[in-house]
Each structure stands twice: as structure tokens, then as C-alpha cells.
Simulated scan of single mutants.
Amino acid sequence: MNLALWTAAALLAVVALTGGITKTFVSKDTLAAFHGGGWTGDVGVGFVKTLGVLELLAALGLILPAALAVAPVLVPVTAVCWVVLMIGAMITHGRRGEFALAGLNLIYLALAAFIAWGRFGPWAFTA
């Protein structure tokens, strides 16, 4: 199970890193042109960049605390924060009628919930 939790965290970290780099370093107009990026037209540049930075931090928070054995409790805390972020993403895509993207967000939410459950519960990192 530990391997499954590490794998889920790694997959989610890649998703967060990809989204974070894109939202942080790609212009809002370019993002709006991508499939699923239309929501960026409804919000300010600062909001998009803030989400990007949060996703970059999530990518780090899912892996580094446990890998470095420094405050490993941050791994499940980050996973819970990702769940909240995905709820917002699902609402946003659902309102826009982008149900396939909302479904993808649900998969990411499920991965994060699995990580939070496992790392807060039976497979928590011990000090």
C-alpha cells in the first residue's frame, strides 16, 4: 500500500507541476485558446498566476516533505488542499458545461483523497 500511495503522490505531483508551470508561465490569452482553458477569460491574470503558484507548491508538498523526512505531515495536508482545489475546478468546469474536464478533476480529487486517507491513517509517516 505504501508503494500505491507513493505512486499516487507522484502522479498527482506531475499533474500539479504541469498545471502550475502552465498557469504561472503561459499568458492568459494563450491559456484561453487551449481546450479547457476558457475559464481563464472569466478571471484576472493574478488569479490564474496564483493558482499556478499553488499548484507548483502542491507538487512540492506531495513529495518533498516525505522524501526529505522534514515535516512529512505536509503530504496529507497538501492532499487535502488539493481536494479543495479540485472541488473548485469541478464547479468551474461544470458551470461551463465542460463535464469531461470535471470528470478528470474528480479523478484527481480521488487520488488526493486516497493520499490523505492513507497518510493521515494507516500508512502515516512516522517520526
Rank of each mutant, 00 (worst) to 15 (best):
M1I: 14
N2L: 09
W6A: 12
W6K: 13
T7H: 03
A9H: 09
A9F: 09
L11T: 14
T18F: 11
G19T: 11
G20M: 12
K23L: 14
V26K: 10
S27F: 01
K28F: 03
D29V: 04
D29R: 02
T30L: 05
G38I: 01
W39L: 00
G41F: 00
G44V: 08
V48G: 09
K49C: 03
G52H: 11
G52S: 13
V53G: 10
V53C: 10
E55H: 04
L57R: 08
G61N: 07
L62Q: 07
V70R: 09
V70G: 05
A71H: 05
V73E: 06
P76Y: 14
V77F: 08
T78K: 07
A79W: 05
V84S: 03
L85V: 02
G88Q: 06
A89I: 03
A89P: 01
R95P: 00
R96G: 01
A100V: 15
A102G: 09
L104T: 10
L104W: 08
N105W: 01
N105D: 11
L106H: 02
L106E: 04
L109K: 02
L111D: 03
F114L: 13
A116P: 10
A116F: 09
G118Y: 09
F120Y: 10
G121W: 11
W123N: 14
W123F: 15
F125C: 09
T126Y: 08
A127S: 10
